[in-house]
Write a protein that binds this DNA or RNA. Structure first.
Lengths: 225, 225
DNA sequence: ACCCGTGCTTAACAATTTCATAACATAGTG
DNA sequence: CACTATGTTATGAAATTGTTAAGCACGGGT
């Protein structure tokens, strides 16, 4: 996958946490756990997850209030938030949509339903997300076609190479550290050897046929004209 | 001049039906009427409207269930569905979200509000699926006839194959991920094995007899000339 | 009700592509 | 110059997709 998707999961019942964590990790998501609303807010600010799943009923701070505070955090206004609710809870209390929830997931939780719902939500996110194409210094990156173009000629890349290139070109001139690159192209907990990034960089350079990817020794790489 | 837009309107109160029908027809829409959820499903399948407006509370089958069934009908996965809801029905809103509604129109209905909402919805539709036929690289897809044509010769496909082809050709060049494809051709809650998509792709390729469907390894498939 | 054909899914296996690594070369830095 | 970070290359493992055939479910017709 491109950058691994990070999900913050908050519930006060360890069983549910464990159950959902298991299913989410199995799908390849990056999962962070919290056990009350207070933690939810702190972790959200710290980790900037892509999606937050909040139980409504929790000690210390309930999900509604947590949601409100998260939404009031700069940079987290557009995070996806879904509520967990028991079927028989009083829906009027779950006026969750008033505080800006994006979806709700009913208990008891069925793994398949939950996962498909999450995928649907994340798909919505993708639609809004960054620009589909970037044009910079004679080459154009089309994230939808998974192709780069130079003078109208398509250059195709295998997945990792493309994602690496897409990352670098997403902010031309910015230096991405190796850790950055590892986290965002490979995923947070993936461990790969020292030379892996270099090899991919090399192949991209070869295909692009120019010097647009610069090495910043001791730091990382950047895409620059 | 495009085809007239077809709206299926379902409510059990004749007054509301008449009132809305009047306003919609005045705007030049093609209106079909139903008076309960059962009729909604039947008419939706029969008429393939562009937009369905469902009351939540209805005899025989409520709007929620009708929506669910419509969404599970092949070929109607992407139909626009809007719910009619009385102001204070929190429950409706939440449950409606659950089954994939696109919008809510509150009662009491104000004609102008309703019409602008409907136009906004249909604008969304235009981006994606408006054209009945697509012509691309020697082949033509007719979504109404469920047929593809190459040099005037019809090629017929079973439903799944056709929908898959229709999806890919809806945006030539764009890579559709496997998850995308699963969600939009098979449906959100359907779980099928790993090789199912491949098998369908293979059959389509066989029938098209060319290389227009490309594999993007690790991502998905695209239709490209 | 029964049969038949079609469409859909699966499973097993083959073919292919991509990826990570190791070993070594080179360049940059103080 | 010594040391460290990066470049290069070939190679095998791993991941992904292709292919085929078989079985099941469903609908239409008799």
């Amino acid at each position: 996958m491109s950058k691994k998707i990070k999900i913050l999961l908050v519930d006060d019942e360890p069983d549910i946490l464990e159950f959902m964590e298991y299913n989410l990790i199995k799908e390849g998501y990056d999962v962070i756990l919290g056990k009350n609303g207070k933690e939810a807010v702190d972790l959200a600010r710290l980790e900037k997850p892509d999606l937050i799943i909040l139980d409504i009923m929790m000690p210390v701070m309930d999900g509604i209030e947590a949601c409100r505070q998260i939404r009031n955090t700069p940079g987290l206004k557009d995070v996806l938030i879904a509520f967990l609710t028991a079927r028989n809870e009083d829906y009027s209390q779950i006026a969750g949509f008033d505080v800006g929830a994006d979806d709700y997931i009913g208990k008891p939780i069925k793994p398949r339903v939950m996962l498909s719902r999450i995928k649907a939500l994340l798909r919505r996110l993708n639609g809004v997300h960054s620009e589909v194409t970037t044009k910079i210094g004679g080459i154009e990156i089309d994230r939808e076609k998974y192709l780069a173009f130079r003078d109208g000629n398509a250059i195709s890349f295998p997945r990792k190479e493309f994602e690496l290139l897409a990352l670098l070109t997403s902010k031309p001139g910015k230096v991405f550290t190796r850790d950055d690159i590892l986290a965002r192209v490979w995923g947070n907990d993936v461990v790969v050897g020292d030379r892996t990034i270099d090899v991919h960089i090399r192949k991209i350079r070869e295909k692009l046929g120019d010097e647009s990817i610069k090495t910043v020794k001791g730091i990382g790489y950047k895409f620059d004209i």
